[in-house]
Design a binder for these strands. Sequence first.
DNA 1: GATCGATCGTTGCCATGTCAACTACTCTCC
DNA 2: GGAGAGTAGTTGACATGGCAACGATCGATC
Lengths: 154, 154
Amino acid sequence: MSTTTRWLDDEEQRAWRAWIDLNAQLSARLNRELQAASGLSIADYEILVALTDRDVPDRTLRMYELGERLQWEKSRVSKQVSRMEARGLVERRHCADDRRGAFVDLTEAGQAAIDAAAPGHVALVRELFFEGLSADQVRSLGRFATTVLGRLAD
Amino acid sequence: MSTTTRWLDDEEQRAWRAWIDLNAQLSARLNRELQAASGLSIADYEILVALTDRDVPDRTLRMYELGERLQWEKSRVSKQVSRMEARGLVERRHCADDRRGAFVDLTEAGQAAIDAAAPGHVALVRELFFEGLSADQVRSLGRFATTVLGRLAD
DNA sequence: GATCGATCGTTGCCATGTCAACTACTCTCC
DNA sequence: GGAGAGTAGTTGACATGGCAACGATCGATC
């Protein structure tokens, strides 16, 4: 075991703090504005996007597929779907093939909600995050994030 | 009002998803490991760091100062401090000057907890985040985060 | 076709966060 | 020195998230 710790130097300290603060504030802001503009939370939005990514007329996914795509715990998926079902955004449907399983279907109301919410949300992401970034910077940001993400998967 | 939305192109899409996923997974991982190794949550850790940053023997801050430094809602500070006080990590103390106010003091146990937790946490941050980044990359990452942070403050 | 481990989904318990309302105090200004 | 606005902190209601335990079912294997 080591006896000394290699602390973060000033530059690293600054970068790390800025990173942490940015994430906290960016997600808080996106959540707040999305909520105010459309009554959806980020969690709602992510579920709806996952369902909408399916080709028409298959706006449906198994619970476990939702969990895999979003990298969510199964209990998290289950609870989120319950809340959204209560608001009419999605519906659960029994699965005939696998009697343990359940499908989650996008409803008309859910489709309408995501259609209404998406343009404003994307515009805000653009304004807050991509504004002033060159294509090169976007690419290298993406590369960096993907690299770290890869390390996390191990 | 505009009739068309400028959606994210593929490159932006990728960068944005990677960013979102990275933050979700990185904070989950840091939280999990910190919790397992030291019994502290990230929230605990941040409060303790803020208090430790004060010069000895002033390991104390007003509630509202904690809120300003961490950019937390006051109710969030209040509840976090309550939980930590129950575990003996900090103590509340009445403020004589301003009788509405309260100080939060770091306890011996709190000091010991942060001392025990910090080396492992920093090592993990290094391993997961800074690994393989050049000084230049650290600097430009910091600049980017600071820029966006600035936009968020408006 | 019975058994046993793996998988799917739900639930309860608890920690965390936000928002709004509330109490108690301080400060400003007349 | 008192009214009214603002500030410090707490609380309650509610949404969210993780973890572990559970019931039901599936599937591989003998």
